[in-house]
Amino acid sequence: MERIGKISSIVTPLDRPNIDTDQIVPKQFLKLVQRTGFGKFLFYDWRFEPNGTPKKEFVLNDPKYTSSHILVTGENFGCGSSREHAAWALKDYGFDAIIAPSFADIFYNNCFKNAILPISLDKKLSADIAKSNSVVGIDLKSQTITYDDKTIHFEIEPSRKKTLLEGLDDIAITLQYESDISDFEKAHRL
């Protein structure tokens, strides 16, 4: 997996709470059998009119944000369906980090499998960053965000941090414990 260390770009503000994965990738796009190419479906019903023309007022359609790699959004981001397509779409579109007051659990977990850094920050701070008009810098190693001449710290669980910094393959790690799994299986039968 790709490594994630430093990210710097302007931020895309999307101020809505409870954005669900049906919004992130509507289900009509879940029929592909690959992992790639979902970026064009990201926030589809918010981005496009029914006839396919872009909706001017939607933030992702503002040319100012085309080079943004950081999404700042509302609480409980990624709730609803477990579809990893949501993470694939965000990554494929170009987002490497998402800042929100809170995340839904399955989505949060899916981020780490796809080289996306989810950062939970308190409501006020994330709203403050959302307002920033200049480049915001995220450094995973030092767990800091720099914006508007301020530097703040964020929390992340150490093994999760390691996964992103080193681009680790979870399955390969688990398979190193093959004999523990076999022992467990012998003792536990159901």
């Binding site: 659990d105 977990n109 899916n110 979870d170 398979l175």
Partner: peptide, 22 residues
């Protein structure tokens, strides 16, 4: 519990899941 596709692959390959205790 519900899981994403990467974890589906993880369970297929290892019959285990890496979790934080809820």
């Amino acid at each position: 519990l519900g899981i994403g596709t990467s974890d589906v692959e993880h369970v297929l390959a290892t019959q285990c899941l890496v979790l934080d205790k809820p």
